[in-house]
């Protein structure tokens, strides 16, 4: 079985003011990668206009594109419409679900969605006290639960989790520790570790670092544009890698 080359980026934060810039950087992607994963924060304000800019930049690429939304893409309460616009442009959008692509005979399963915060084992919020606190924690729990089922449903040669929020602290290094609970949750890592995956890709932590690992040993990569400083990173999966 041949190797898979996964291009990944997050936090492209597109808008009218930068239309066309990112698209230019995707030229020739078919020579470098088999698929492009985009880990959320596609827009700045989450408006439908910005969603259309994103669809324009990512449509009709020579490789399939799989994306999730980020917190910015929810800001204007147009997240459902943005998802539709992206899907109409041929982009696979994961909203706590899985997709399996056949890439020239190699099956790649990707599961995920936006994710959410809550913090990391031993230093995190729990479902206790005020309804607001419980709702915050429950949101992440529900997401993790849906990711478990999504991962379980995948039958493929390789599995990747695509998220906006981080599953681990490792890739937050560089961010102020006080805001870690707003940057990710260990519950996301737990779901991946339980069901198994080859890689977790996320964004959101603009000041974080690229490389980390879950408690169960799955590689984690923070591909936020300000972190990777390239149009996208490429990760190779397979026997020869």
């Amino acid at each position: 079985m041949r190797d898979l080359r996964i291009a990944a980026v997050a936090d492209i934060h597109l808008g009218e003011d930068v239309r066309g810039h990112y698209r230019k950087r995707l030229e020739g992607i078919e020579h470098r990668a088999d698929v492009l994963l985009v880990g959320g924060d596609l827009t700045r304000h989450g408006t439908l206009e910005e969603g259309r800019v994103v669809a324009g930049e990512l449509r009709d690429l020579p490789v399939p594109v799989i994306a999730v939304l980020g917190n910015h893409d929810y800001h204007s309460d147009r997240d459902r419409e943005i998802i539709s616009v992206l899907r109409d442009a041929g982009i696979v959008v994961l909203d706590d679900e899985a997709a399996v692509l056949d890439l020239d005979g190699v099956r790649l399963g990707v599961a995920g969605g936006k994710g959410f915060g809550g913090g990391f084992a031993g230093k995190c919020a729990s479902e206790f006290g005020e309804p607001e606190t419980k709702a915050f924690v429950r949101h992440t729990r529900d997401i993790a639960e849906r990711w478990r089922s999504a991962l379980k449903s995948i039958e493929a040669d390789h599995r990747i989790v695509l998220s906006h929020y981080s599953p681990v602290k490792d890739t937050l290094m560089g961010e102020p520790p006080e805001i870690y609970p707003f940057l990710g949750s260990y519950l996301l890592a737990e779901a991946a570790d339980e069901q198994g995956a080859d890689l977790v890709v996320h964004g959101h932590a603009h000041a974080g670092t690229e490389k980390g690992v879950t408690p169960g040993g799955i590689r984690v990569r923070n591909v936020a544009l300000p972190v990777i400083k390239h149009a996208y990173s490429v990760y190779c999966l397979g026997e020869d890698c």
């Binding site: 810039h21 950087r25 400083k229 990173s233 490429v234 190779c236 890698c241």
Partner: peptide, 13 residues
Amino acid sequence: LVEMLEPGEEEHL
């Protein structure tokens, strides 16, 4: 300003 270089070396996992 965020730098956005041409994609670099791939990482083998």
